[in-house]
Every structure is written in structure tokens, then in C-alpha cells.
Amino acid sequence: MPDSFFTASPEWRWWIVFYFFVGGIAGGAFAIAALLRLFGREVDRPLSRLGYYIAFPGSIISGILLIADLKRPERFWHMLIQSETFAPAFKWWSPISVGSWGLLLFGLFSFLAFVGGLAEVGILPRGLQALVQGGLGAVVNVLGGISGFFLAGYTGVLLSTTNRPLWSDTVWLGLLFLLSGFSTGAALLILLSWRQNLPALAWLKELDTWVLGLELVVLIVLLATVGMAVLRPVLFNAWGVLLVLGVVLVGILVPGLLHYRPLLGRLTVPGAALLVLVGGFVLRVVMLLSSEAA
């Protein structure tokens, strides 16, 4: 029996599933928004603003979900500040520690971009649009984009940095979650903007198709490298069926096909985006709960 089966479950369940999903979308959406803002054209700004509008609420929801999962939620600040010395609590070798700081930084940059985005459309004072334009805007977008990529991917690294079945038996979870976060972030952007006929939508759809392909490849590599001794008890059951149907078929292959053939008519674009979101959610459910059940 593999060594990972002698361990106990941390019982990370639905709060964490939803956090991984929302955090991935928020991080992915900001990374895409930052790419568009830094290297796109002026006509791409509405789509990048939409990314900011997704990212900041996503970071708030992420924080709430994480705190709700703690057994002592009133001590959430112990993640960041040592309770006795009030010095910063930071361990670079512990993904849960780095992730707490990463989420805080992502929250900060996504908030600045959110404010800048609202200023651009005149809801907040125009002067604040400097937060997403010019030199300051570039800094916010670069740092926010990096922390967005981090937020989308570190959750998989966190799972691998345990001794639990499946999670610790692979080093590919971080990359898989990063790709999934990016594709679900893109999918939500498409879903919220498809009626507006924005010029960057074609770019986003093509990008999402590529990312879905990469996600499938990484998922196959992950499963191939884990080994049968782990796969048999963890995924050769209903969880495995859910992975194949919910993630591979519904979340990757069907939306990939829809990107090339408009089988749903006018609803093809939002339909494909919705399926990508469903697949991204099911991926978190299976990866988290199948190990917890082992």
C-alpha cells in the first residue's frame, strides 16, 4: 500500500472546493485582463475592465470561504501575523502560508484595478483611472497579473505539499489548477460579454481552446504518473466516472468541439463557456473529495 494511505484526512470539503473554484476564476480573469491591458488595444479595455470586476469580488469571496473553513475563524489573522509577537507570519516553504499572503496581495491589486475600472467608466472620480492606465496602471496590472496566476495555481501546489493520497502522489496538480483557473476565468469573461461583440472575444475563445487542450494533456500526464496503486482505490469508482464525464467530456471535449462547430446555434458561445465552468468546478470536486474519501 502506498505510504500516502497511512495518513488522516484534513476534511477540506465544500468551502475549499468553492474557494479553489472561485479563486481560480478570479486569478485567471485578472491575468487575462492584465494581458489585454498591457498588450492589447484601446478597444479591448471593456473586456479587461470586466476582468477587474470579476477579480476583486472573487478575492473577497475567496477570503470569506477560507475563513469559514477554519475551525477557529476568529483567528484567521494568525495566518498573516504571529499572535504573540505581532511579527509577520511567513514561511516560503509552506504553500498555505505563501497562499495567505498571495491572496492578500491579489486582493489589494484587484481592488486597485477594480477602482480604476470604475473610474474609467465614470462611476468613480476620473483621476482614479490612473490605477489602470499609464505607468501606475502597468505596475498594478503586472503585479496583479502575477498574483492572479499565483492564486490560480498555488492551490494545486498546496495539495501536493501534503502526504495525502493522490495529492502528494503527483507534482502536476498546481499546473492543472492553473490551466483550469485560466480557462474558467476566460469562460466567465466570455459568458458575461458574448452579447457585446467585443473585438477581443475571438482572441479569448481561441486562447481558451488552446488552454483546454493543454489541460487535457496535463490531466492525462497527471493520471499516468500517479500510478495504479493510487488510482485504483481513489479514482476507479464513482469519482473516476465523474472525472471522465464531468471534466474530460463536459468540461473539455464538448466545449472544444463547440469552439469549432456552432452546434447550439446562437447559444454555442455561452453554452461552451458554461460547460467549461461546470468542468472546472467538477475538477476541483473530484480532485479534492476523491482523496478525502480514500
Binding site: D3, F6, A8, S9, P10, W12, P73
Partner: peptide
């Protein structure tokens, strides 16, 4: 008095002790 119940230690222990 410091632990906030994040349970990272439970998943990390190779012996299933915590």
C-alpha cells in the same frame, strides 16, 4: 492558543496522528 484549525498539519503528517 495559536492554532486556528486550518488542518494543514493533519494532511502533512505522514502517520495520521493529528
Amino acid at each position: 492558543d495559536v492554532c486556528n484549525g486550518c488542518r494543514a498539519c493533519i494532511a502533512a503528517c505522514p502517520f495520521g496522528v493529528i
